[in-house]
Design a protein around this nucleic acid. Structure first.
Length: 912
RNA sequence: GGGAACAUAGCUCAGCUGGGAGAGCGGCGCCCUUACAAGGCGUAGGUCACAGGUUCGAUCCCUGUUGUUCCCACCA
């Protein structure tokens, strides 16, 4: 064992061992209870970013914990084909060679992407390995592999047959750059500066618009039905400027009288609200742009112009004709393509849609059910979901209640091609599970498969069950569905989580895809800004792992994963947790040294034969058993650390159970650093040195508590704990080559909590701290070893430990001599008073200052309590136990005040 | 326009059903005591954003204000 902690020495070695030994594998069938998580499949194009790192870590913590708890644990990994994103990446590659996908043709292009995927698709899953992730890699899936594609087709056909998927001519969002339809979610509202053009539309009608070019497709002018200014004009026809088309003036309550002139031009072909108006009033819908963003034949003189050019020319022409009244600056929000950030155009188009209302109703009720259940009750059912943090419930309901049909078709080549065949003869559409060669209606063989593919989220919406073999009733599906937890970022709550819930419920007889949803925060840079390549503030997780180790990174992410908050990632914090790993490492070296495992200054593994003490004392029993049997006979210090360990175990388990992983991290951190290292190891030095009869017992406790701590911490910091574990002595129940990751997770034992020991040691600690503070504040040289006496009965048993840890020469009961001596300093601890001969040690004026500060604190305390107690309202209305406690506190303070006044008097005398 | 979250020590954050505010880092002082200087010991630092209200008592519950962030919708 090296003298210092160096994660690069062992992380990859341990990972290879775990993976090749098959420790990550889950069993399709098992007598053990099941626990399963479906990994949110990262895009094949992706490289690991901090968001992935956070999700991967949190899931791995849960998975490793449950595995150690004895669950048949499945963490299902895989990647997503990510339609648009991947197609864009490969097209960009092609562009470098001055080629386009159209030159290649569909078949060759798809082959190119597959090749690209084979080459680059494994990058991100390799990177996850560096973090220590433990999914069952042998089950890894891809959304476009054979099984999953089959599932996608099955779902499409089934929903079509159930009339839940339909083809229709609707206004959809169209991206001119990506050349495809987009769902509502893929359109991102973005603030842009634009202009407000006021147009003399017709005599008496001025219309303000931000998009003058759309007037080419206007089919009405709308006013509010109760707008007196226009009542007379309703029903009349007006001419569209520049175009000359006659269109009606209609009345519709959608129009806001107060806004602008109160008149609205209606372009059903290129605006969603206008489209609705068009439907209500039976208006014609005229598309004036083609799929590439050029004005089409409906645009007359403007044919062939781009949207921007058309706007310029329309405005110029209006100006020429004197119809442009004014142009104002106008900031407004414009829908932009999520992928390429180009402004999207509402377009009338034939697309495939999925009806959402029936799905949404069930999806709402599953979460409603879950909301009223405790986490324990939730485990027992398969029809309810709880979202945590619960604040997301409202957002979820709101979205579900206002949901619109989902446009699932995309005009891309990379993805699941829609299993629908169009007949060239009769135009009938045949939807089928198997490839179609004959029209289902007229029998013609002139059929052609629909060229569209499905939205990526359609296939990922099936992920929790398609990866388990659905629609076949496989053993894995039976064992692991519903999955236990869905852990992902809140940014894909609607894109993905909501759709999995809808699909999962419908296609699995009302069984939810997962029982809990945990939404984690967004990882930002240390200033709270979103990390992005353009800002140059990206911290690469792989760099972090290289510089600080995967464990330090994992611990940081876990410790900062408080619910609902953004995580500001700072390297300082990661470095701090690297030192924590180092602390654990060195504490382990101490333990091993005290077990006799020292060779040339390096600690090596202790073989069973060398470890005579343990074997001799325990009689070959497992440590856990021996510790329980011997507990009542142990030294208070050993009982104390065992008690603290039980409390820590309870707290860690609670944190994991309630998904307060940051609490679990903090419990482990403080137990290791404060209880174990700062106190117990120091106490153990005294035990080993001065209590020969306690040596074996203490060695066992050092080892046992370390081992249990390693197990508790393993889900969070798997590498360093596993590495240390490999150095621990072999003994009953622990063979060479055993893995910590397969060990049983500690369970708190109530019989190992000794309240008396907890209290006693707290008294000693308080005394030691008081003595140390006295030394520090009086500048007593660190090397000085004063002789000290004490009064009080509670520290008696701890004399040796107090003497050692407070660095005293001796600590004996006060006989009266030192107390009377005028040069004696008094130290008031809570449960004892100490007397120190100060002559030659202390600067008395410094001591006086300290005492007076302490006195003013006591006086303030007295005033505070007195004030509280003087109010009759308090003594009458507050709980009697509380009032009693306050009275006792007051008495205690008053005694302290008397004591300190005496000491101050004495000290003052000394200075004179 | 509607909704949500957040505002606690110089910085980053805990504070889980109201009873005298905590951690890590940073600061300051002393110490290289053989597990660890990536360390030890001690210490300073906060009218818990602001204003009201409920209560014997509010960082915590309610209302409002200010500031930051996010989500939804998009009045052309």
């Amino acid at each position: 064992m090296h003298k210092s902690y160096d994660p690069n020495q062992f992380e990859s070695r341990l990972y290879q061992w775990w993976e090749s030994a098959g420790f990550f594998r889950a069993a399709d069938t098992s007598s053990k209870p099941a626990f399963s998580i479906a990994l949110p499949p990262p895009n094949v194009t992706g490289v690991l970013h901090n968001g992935h790192a956070l999700g991967t870590t949190l899931q791995d913590v849960l998975v490793r914990w449950k595995r150690m708890k004895g669950y048949n644990t499945l963490w299902m990994p895989g990647t997503d084909h990510a339609g648009i994103a991947t197609q864009m990446v490969v097209e960009r590659e092609l562009a470098k060679e001055k080629k386009s996908r159209h030159e290649l043709g569909r078949k060759a292009f798809i082959e190119t992407i597959w090749k690209w995927k084979e080459k680059h698709g494994a990058i991100i899953v390799q990177q996850m390995r560096k973090l220590g992730a433990s999914p069952d890699w042998e089950r890894e899936r891809f959304t476009m592999d054979e099984g999953l594609s089959k599932a996608v087709r099955e779902v499409f056909v089934r929903l079509y047959e159930e009339n839940l998927i339909y083809r229709g001519l609707r206004l959809i969002n169209w991206c001119h750059r990506c050349q495809t339809a987009l769902s509502d979610l893929e359109v991102v509202p973005t603030d842009k500066k634009g202009h407000f053009y006021h147009i003399q539309y017709a005599p008496g009608i001025v219309i303000a618009t931000t998009r003058p070019e759309t007037l080419l497709g206007d089919t009405a002018v709308a006013v509010h039905p109760e707008d007196d200014r226009y009542t007379k004009m309703v029903g009349k026809k007006v001419k569209v400027p520049l175009v000359g088309r006659l269109i009606p003036v209609i009345a519709d309550a959608y129009v806001d009288k107060e806004f602008g002139s109160g008149a609205l031009k209606v372009t059903p072909g290129h605006d969603f609200n206008d489209y609705e108006i068009g439907v209500r009033h039976n208006l014609a819908t005229i598309s004036v742009f083609d799929t590439k963003g050029k004005v089409n034949e409906n645009g007359g003189a403007y044919l062939g112009l781009s949207v921007a050019e058309a706007r310029e020319k329309v405005v110029a022409d209006l100006k020429d004709q004197g119809l442009l009244i004014k142009v104002e600056e106008h900031a407004h929000s414009v829908g932009v393509c999520q992928r390429c950030e180009r402004v999207v155009e509402p377009m009338l188009s034939h697309q495939w849609f999925m009806k959402m209302k029936p799905f949404a109703e069930k999806a709402i009720s599953a979460v409603k059910k879950g909301e009223s259940l405790s986490l324990q009750d939730l485990e027992k059912r398969d029809d309810a979901i709880k979202i945590l943090p619960e604040t997301w419930h409202a957002t979820y309901y709101h979205w579900m209640e206002n949901i619109r049909d989902w446009c699932v078709s995309r005009q891309l080549w990379w993805g699941h091609q829609i299993p629908a065949w169009h007949c060239k003869k009769c135009a009938h559409i045949t939807v089928s599970r198997s490839d179609v060669t004959q029209c289902g209606q007229c029998g013609s063989s002139e059929v052609e498969q629909d060229s569209d593919v499905l939205d990526t989220w359609f296939s990922s919406g099936l992920w929790p069950f398609s990866t388990l073999g659905w629609p076949e009733k496989t053993p894995a599906l039976k064992t692991f569905y519903p999955t236990s937890v869905m852990e992902t970022g809140f940014d894909i709550l609607f894109f993905w989580v909501a759709r999995m819930i809808m699909m999962g419920l419908h296609l699995n007889d009302g069984k939810v895809p997962f029982k809990r949803v945990y939404l984690h925060a967004m990882v930002r840079d240390e200033k709270g800004q979103k990390m992005s390549k353009t800002k140059g503030n990206v911290i690469d997780p792989l760099d972090i792992i290289r510089d600080y180790g995967a464990d330090a990174f994992r611990f940081t992410l876990t410790a900062m994963a408080g619910q609902g908050r953004d995580i500001k990632l700072s390297l300082d914090r990661i470095e701090g947790y690297k030192t924590f790993c180092n602390k654990l490492w060195n504490a382990s070296r101490y333990v091993l040294m005290r077990l006799g495992a020292v060779q040339d200054g390096d600690v090596s593994r202790v073989e069973a034969a060398d470890f005579a003490t343990v074997a001799g004392v325990t009689g070959g029993k497992p440590l856990t058993d021996w510790v329980q049997e011997s507990f009542s006979k142990m030294h208070p210090v050993n009982r104390w650390i065992l008690s603290r360990l039980q409390h820590t175990t309870i707290a860690v388990e609670k944190g994991l159970e309630e998904y307060r992983l940051n609490d679990a991290a903090s419990e482990i951190y403080h137990f290791v650093w404060n209880d174990y290292c700062d106190w117990y190891i120091e106490f153990s030095k005294e035990l080993l040195a001065s209590h020969p009869e306690r040596v074996a017992e203490t060695q066992i406790c050092l080892l046992h508590v370390l081992e249990q701590t390693l197990a508790l911490a393993h889900p969070l910091i798997p590498f360093v704990t596993e590495e240390i574990y490999s150095y621990l002595p072999l003994r009953t129940g622990v063979k060479k080559g055993d893995a910590l990751m397969l060990k049983t997770f500690p369970t708190a034992v109530a019989a190992l909590i000794d309240e008396t020991a907890l209290r006693d040691i707290a008294v000693w600690q308080e005394a030691i701290t008081a003595l140390r503070a006295f030394r520090g504040e009086n500048n007593i040289p660190p090397k000085a070893r004063p002789a000290v006496t004490f009064e009080g009965n509670e520290v008696e048993k701890g004399i040796g430990f107090i003497r050692a840890l407070a660095q005293l020469d001796s600590l004996t009961r006060e006989t009266g001599a030192l107390k009377k001596n005028p040069t004696t300093g008094q130290i008031l601890a809570k449960h004892a008073t100490f007397f120190v001969q100060l002559e030659g040690l202390v600067d008395f004026s410094g001591e006086l200052k300290r005492l007076e500060k302490e006195r003013s604190q006591i006086v303030a305390d007295i005033e505070f309590v007195q004030q509280k107690l003087s109010k009759e309202s308090f003594t009458a209305k507050a709980p009697p136990a509380l009032v009693q406690k306050e009275r006792e506190k007051l008495l205690g303070y008053q005694t302290q005040l008397e004591n300190i006044d005496l000491t101050i008097k004495k000290t003052k005398a000394l200075i004179k």
